[in-house]
Design a protein around this nucleic acid. Structure first.
Lengths: 184, 184
DNA sequence: GACACTAACGAACGATCGTTCTATAAAGTG
DNA sequence: CACTTTATAGAACGATCGTTCGTTAGTGTC
């Protein structure tokens, strides 16, 4: 539900109906609507770590791991069956100017993702695949851009080329920062 | 209001209060909440064309115009005093999986923007500044990525470097597709 | 001056919102 | 067994939702 209509539009009444519970019975588990929303965000983050990060982090460090992580990221909502897209990403736009626990939760989630991405990039520098003078923050910034653009193309425009475009952008990003191969 | 809380969260009651009108008086101008939301989206698009596109289209075609358009785009919401960011862009994420007139309106707005961007890029090819074999759709895709990433960095993370990052990404995009300068 | 049209209003509608309170049945614990 | 804890339920709360209705004041038109 949160994926389809957004975390902010969640309604305890409708939610109780769908779970075949009473409103008050369901409500008792959370104590407030905000706590319920927070629980949804946390659950979403947990699934993300499980489906996107964990498999990639089992691969050997370097460009291969980074690439796998990005690919997992790009359509993890399909793997987890979130038909309305990433809950946290949608919540980011919804709450970015509404101070409170929800915005904080979203911000922390996305910050954690950025840190993980940055570390993964850093390790691709260590392996000698990416240049040591790379601006890692800038690199992650552009990765995020690729993700956002892909989601919009896929979800709003049903663009069948979205994946292909994303990979092209990723390859260009990597190529521009790769260690120059010496011609033999 | 739409900028801050989203088009979907608009409430006629609150809106009437802020405009110092009666609920029914305000309501009569639109006939339904959905029509009001559509009016907001259309108004937003009109301002966008006025503030972002028109000034850029008065510049001579080519890379300069493209660059101006992107720069206008990146912080047009400041110029128009939309403290919650672009209404249409937020609505895109909100309605991308909810069929209906609102989603159609959003889609058409963003499609129009993409067309304008594509034409502007095409003219930078005509002037000989960008390579003729360029994939224009891909170029626009990446422009959109830069915009989305910039907004998130600015709005959610209050990143003071967002503008700088955006320009760096834009320059890299242009450099990779520019006509190669012959060394003399 | 009669008439039509427009804009705005206040009151009310049924529906749904998040929340609180009380009750009940089941499960766990000594 | 008695006792506490936990999960769920039902009823009701005041508030707000989008919408409808009838009315009134103003404005333009013949």
């Amino acid at each position: 539900m949160a994926s389809r209509i957004g975390v902010g539009a969640l309604s305890i009444g409708v939610l109780a109906e769908r779970t075949r519970m009473s409103k008050s019975g369901l409500f008792a588990h959370f104590g407030s609507k905000e706590e319920l929303q927070l629980a949804v965000l946390r659950e979403s983050q947990a699934r993300f770590a499980e489906v996107v990060l964990r498999p990639a982090l089992r691969l050997p460090r370097g460009l291969g791991r980074l690439r796998a992580m990005v690919i997992n990221w790009l359509d993890w909502t399909r793997a987890v069956n979130l038909p309305g897209g990433c809950v946290i990403n949608a919540a980011a736009l919804e709450f970015d100017d509404q101070p409170g626990p929800l915005r904080d939760e979203v911000r922390n989630s996305l910050l954690a993702l950025r840190r993980t991405l940055a570390e993964t990039v850093a390790k691709a520098v260590e392996t000698g695949e990416l240049r040591p003078d790379i601006d890692i923050e800038q690199f992650v910034f552009e990765l995020n851009g690729i993700y956002q653009a892909t989601q919009q193309n896929r979800r709003l425009f049903s663009d069948p080329d979205a994946d292909h475009r994303a990979l092209a952008a990723f390859d260009r990003l990597v190529r521009d920062h790769a260690v120059i191969q010496q011609k033999e």
